[in-house]
Simulated scan of single mutants.
Amino acid sequence: MTVREVVFPPGRQALYERNRYSPAVKANGLLFVSGQVGSREDGSPEPELTAQVRRAFINLNAILKEAGCTFDDVIDVQVFIVDPQTRFETIWSVVPEFWGEAPYPTVTAVGVTWLYGFDFEIKVIAKLPGNSA
């Protein structure tokens, strides 16, 4: 059985405990990060789309940092977008602020109809530093 070593970003434990999931789990040299949305400290969404995307990346980066990683350690990305036909270009204009340089991680983008009041969610898998997995 794989042991789950949970990673909590600073100041967000209550949100994850209330919603009953782990923000990230270390296992077998990898970091599996739950989907991150553009939520403020109280869990409410940033109302404006570009601010929401930036906040999602800030929340993601807080988890990566707590695990000893950066976005450069990310190898796989999944993004979920409500109404991607009208929002994709706006969202993707923010991504370079956080994405880093090539080679880029793999990406799967999925259009969805509902994200609990949010318009964008990002979920990643990263390689933990010092591991050859």
Rank of each mutant, 00 (worst) to 15 (best):
A109D: 10
V112S: 08
M1N: 08
T70V: 06
T113W: 03
F88R: 12
G11P: 00
A67D: 04
R4Q: 12
R54T: 12
A133K: 07
K127M: 03
I125L: 02
F80N: 12
W92L: 05
K127Y: 02
N59D: 02
S44H: 06
V74N: 00
G11A: 06
V79C: 07
E89G: 11
D72M: 01
T108W: 00
Q13E: 15
N19R: 12
F120V: 11
P9R: 09
N61D: 09
R20W: 08
V110Y: 01
G35M: 08
V3S: 14
D83P: 01
G11D: 11
E66H: 02
I81G: 06
F80V: 09
P45K: 05
L31F: 11
G100K: 02
I122F: 00
S34F: 10
P129Q: 03
K123L: 13
F88T: 04
T90R: 15
A51N: 07
D83K: 07
G43S: 14
F57D: 03
P10S: 12
E97D: 15
P47A: 08
D119M: 05
Y116K: 12
A27H: 03
L31W: 09
I122K: 01
T50M: 15
T113K: 14
V107R: 03
V6T: 15
P9H: 06
L49W: 09
A109T: 14
S132I: 02
V124N: 01
T86A: 13
Q85K: 13
T70Q: 00
K26G: 00
C69Q: 07
L15P: 00
R12G: 03
S39D: 14
F120R: 08
E48S: 10
V95M: 10
G35L: 05
E17M: 05
G100E: 00
P103W: 04
S39F: 10
D83Y: 01
P45D: 09
P47S: 10
F8L: 15
P96A: 12
N59C: 04
A133M: 08
G29Q: 10
P129N: 02
A133L: 09
K123I: 11
E48T: 10
V74C: 01
F57G: 03
V6S: 04
L60A: 11
G38P: 14
K65A: 15
I91S: 09
